[in-house]
Design a protein around this nucleic acid. Structure first.
Lengths: 213, 213
DNA sequence: GTCTACTACAGAACACTGTTCTCGTCAAGT
DNA sequence: ACTTGACGAGAACAGTGTTCTGTAGTAGAC
């Protein structure tokens, strides 16, 4: 009830809209009465996080690489559906009951593929941080119409730098902003997955390309 | 003047201490008068970020791997010296003038090592996100004395899960929380650096270990 | 039937936040 | 001497999370 109202507020207004008074209004109750349902805002946030991760599941693919990639995409898509949530997961020990089956499946798949235990245990931390940070960044980034103008202005600034002091920065100005946000996200996941692959006890064959799925 | 006061507040009280009224008090001025020095809090934050990145420099090492690693450590150490700053960089297009020489040096080193332009241009984004997210997490995490107790409690919770439904989670409970925060950070950088190495136009020789410096 | 205990809620209040508006003071320029 | 402009203080506004106090209504006990 209260978490549904909170989710609705997040969807329509982002993280700043998640206010005790607004949640109370949403369910037709005074702000002070909210504290009958919930101890404080922190508890409300935890409930929201748990609810949200209930909708996620780890896809069944052939390879652990593709599983990680697909799950990462689903996670990012979920963050995008609920703006403001990424900011809530960062800076919080965001391990809710709903996450347990997800972590279990991923660890299982990684171990089955021959990944050392230490790596399998840490990969959730690394991936969660990366995707959470990306989602947070895109949350707060200037949106829609302004974005292109902003990017152009930023590129222009980089290009206008003195080429003798910043030759590489100037040279790569266009490259740095090339590609969509999705492209950058996919590339980052690629780096991480390629890095993880080097920990396999059965090393991949170098010729024929790296196992990126 | 104002940024020095702001930095002092961050050092002693963390991110929540950075308040316009407190900054004003620190320099012996009323809150409203602060707006004579600074347009708004956002501008003050940008000034703080720029000041902070002035103290950083990219070390000169033999390999690009060691350079990335050393710079990453310096960045994390800087975040730790100034609690609350990591939260400011995340969710903000945190490219200040003081960062330009740093980015230039890193891009230069990567290109010289044979890294494709696209990778060299993106690596700052990926690394900055990862380190910023880690620093933010450690910022907000319960500190000092409580930490060990909290970790033990968390491990206990994981181990108490039904082993038939979460066999891998239970099995790796100890492994997941093993190692210090620094260990986890170093490992994450290792994954990223190993992943980046796979993009080199001159591929590293697989036998003899991966080039992790 | 009456009284009591308890629950759910509302309203006001407190200590904050960023920001703006208005006012006063004081030094420099003409 | 008078004006102008800068500088800063104080109050105020619209918010925030949270707590305290009071007030209905309702269930159960005698």
């Amino acid at each position: 009830m209260v978490v549904s109202a909170a989710l609705q507020l997040l969807e329509s207004g982002g993280g700043e809209a998640l206010t005790m008074r607004r949640v109370a209004d949403q369910i037709g109750v005074s702000a002070s009465s909210l504290y009958g349902y919930v101890a404080n805002k922190e508890e409300l946030v935890q409930l929201v996080l748990d609810r949200i991760f209930e909708d996620l599941e780890v896809p069944s693919t052939g390879s652990w690489q593709e599983t990680l990639r697909e799950f990462g995409r689903a996670l990012l898509a979920m963050y995008r559906r609920h703006p403001g949530v990424a900011a809530l997961t960062l800076g919080r020990v965001a391990v809710t009951p709903a996450m347990l089956p997800l972590g279990e499946r991923i660890i299982s798949e990684l171990r089955a593929a021959g990944m050392p235990d230490q790596v399998a245990a840490f990969v959730g931390d690394l991936g969660g941080l990366y995707i959470g940070a990306i989602a947070y960044e895109q949350d707060v980034t200037p949106l829609a119409g302004q974005e292109k103008e902003f990017v152009d202005q930023f590129t222009g600034w980089l290009k206008s730098l003195p080429a003798d002091r910043f030759p590489n920065t100037v040279a790569l100005a266009d490259t740095a902003v090339a590609g969509s946000a999705d492209d950058r996200f996919e590339w980052g996941m690629d780096v991480i997955i390629r890095g993880l692959a080097t920990y396999l006890v059965v090393p991949p064959s170098p010729e024929g390309g790296w196992p990126t799925g």
